[in-house]
């Protein structure tokens, strides 16, 4: 059964993903799809932007695409 809030877009959740492996903005957006978080597209973009600015992750290019990552 689909739930409107089986995934939460939080700083902790983003941190966990970025510690595990480098991700593009699109990879992150896939992890926090609007149908799973219950947020609108605009809210998702705004919240994720705030979280990324706060976490200030490392960046590197892989296959010409910018990836964010964190070390523990």
């Amino acid at each position: 059964t689909p739930s409107s809030s089986d995934v939460q877009l939080t700083e902790e959740a983003v941190k966990r993903y970025l510690i595990r492996k480098p991700m593009t903005t699109k990879d992150l957006l896939k992890k926090f799809q609007t149908k799973r978080t219950g947020l609108s597209s605009e809210q998702t973009v705004n919240v994720l932007a705030q979280i990324l600015k706060k976490l200030n992750p490392e960046r590197k290019n892989i296959n010409d695409k910018m990836h964010f990552y964190l070390t523990e």
Binding site: K26, L29, V45, L48, A49, L52, N56, R59, M66
Partner: peptide, 20 residues
């Protein structure tokens, strides 16, 4: 859809522009 995902990624990157 993937085009919506592309638009969201572009919007997010624009938000992060000064930061990146």
């Amino acid at each position: 859809s993937s085009s919506e995902a592309d638009e969201m990624a572009a919007a997010l990157e624009a938000e992060l522009n000064d930061f990146i």
